[in-house]
């Protein structure tokens, strides 16, 4: 079953059809280069632009930009505010705002951090927007991850909507019994345990049943499992993955070993 999930967007572009491990390797390599590569600005700019180009080629640039703005605008404003006005490294001042002076060094640093975060976010979205979480788990399992850990990755994805719905019924039930969830801080703190405990207890008591159900279905059987849908991989993708990893490690070494 491939359903709509999280921020994943179903589609049939080339990016969507790539093997999940190829996209995961791209994201990891890009993030390593953005934060650990030599040459501050260059290392952030190039992976970010490549990631944006990949997103655009799959028709995901608009949604990617929207998510990036939602996450990064508050961060960016705060970075400029904190570092532009208060950074201890500020030496040259470029602007006077009432009693505050805007420092050149702080602003440059803030812009660098924003650029890095944008590049890292674009690179993560290449993977996250185009890959169904279940396919990523399957790919990791085929690559040798223990099926027990694959279960830990996959099962919460199906459970989240279920428990999220249960919170609403617990709230309704407790309010019907007179629990107040508004008012002063003390009253709201008092309402915490009556809302959290029933959810935790009911979820934990289910655990035994889930474990039994897994055991009965041969969860710990030592045989290799087969899959309903096979993932497409190819030799050029395998080559590309090793190439990207080698590039990331090489650039990391260039900065920290031969610098």
């Amino acid at each position: 079953m491939v359903s709509h999930f999280g921020i994943f967007l179903p589609g049939c572009s080339r990016l969507h059809r790539l093997h999940p491990l190829t996209k995961l390797t791209f994201t990891l390599a890009a993030v390593i280069i953005v934060f650990g590569g030599p040459g501050k600005w260059f290392s952030a700019l190039v992976p970010g632009l490549i990631a944006l180009a990949i997103l655009a080629s799959a028709g995901l640039a608009r949604i990617g930009l929207r998510i990036t703005l939602r996450i990064l605008v508050p961060l960016a404003l705060m970075l400029l505010f904190v570092h532009g006005l208060f950074s201890p490294v500020n030496q040259n001042f470029i602007l006077q705002l009432a009693i505050f002076k805007v420092g050149r060094e702080g602003v440059l640093y803030a812009v660098l951090v924003i650029l890095r975060l944008t590049a890292a976010l674009f690179s993560s979205l290449v993977l996250v927007l185009s890959t169904h979480p279940a396919h990523l788990v399957q790919a990791l399992e085929e690559a040798g991850l223990s099926p027990r850990f694959a279960y830990l990755f996959g099962s919460p994805l199906l459970l989240i909507p279920q428990l999220s719905g249960r919170i609403q019924s617990i709230r309704a039930a407790q309010q019907a019994r007179g629990l107040e969830i508004q008012g002063n801080l003390l009253r709201r703190v008092k309402a915490l345990f009556p809302l959290v405990a029933p959810l935790a207890f009911s979820a934990l008591v289910d655990v035994e049943e889930r474990a039994l159900a897994l055991e009965v279905r041969g969860f710990s059987a030592p045989h290799t499992k087969t899959y309903l849908n096979a993932l497409q991989d190819s030799s050029w993708q395998r080559l590309l993955r090793w190439g990207m990893l080698a590039l990331a490690v090489g650039l990391l070494a260039k900065r920290f070993v031969w610098a």
């Binding site: 709230r171 809302l195 889930r210």
Partner: peptide, 25 residues
Amino acid sequence: STLTLALMAVAIVLNIVLGQVVSLL
């Protein structure tokens, strides 16, 4: 053990959904 794995899966979901209760209050 399988029991612990089932517990961990449920706990991961608790981590993620309990934020809703906090924002409710």
